[in-house]
Amino acid sequence: MSPRETLRTFIVDTFFVDDFGDDDSFLRKGLIDSTGMMELVAFIETEFHIKLDDKELVPENLDSLSRVAAFVTRKQSLSKAS
């Protein structure tokens, strides 16, 4: 499964929201609250074996499914390169 699908499955299973688009803002649509965001971060770290820095927990990286997927892909390629 691509990161996007894995993430979507996780979000649907965990937060019981299924009707959301790839570019919907989690915050503005009220899809994920602050605790949920922390759970999403923990999930990304365990599932994709990447370490997120606290400085990276900003809306540009995590506020919508497409952003999260892009961020995860970027991080993965970075960790492979190093």
Binding site: L27, S34, M37, V41, D54, L57, V58
Partner: peptide
């Protein structure tokens, strides 16, 4: 157990901080 930068939300054990922009309007 670690510093929390300005305008952020610290959560969990051990706490991690995230930008308040991510979780609050």
């Amino acid at each position: 157990s670690q510093d929390v930068p300005p305008d952020s939300l610290a959560m969990g054990n051990p706490a991690r901080s995230m930008s308040l922009d991510l979780v609050a309007r």
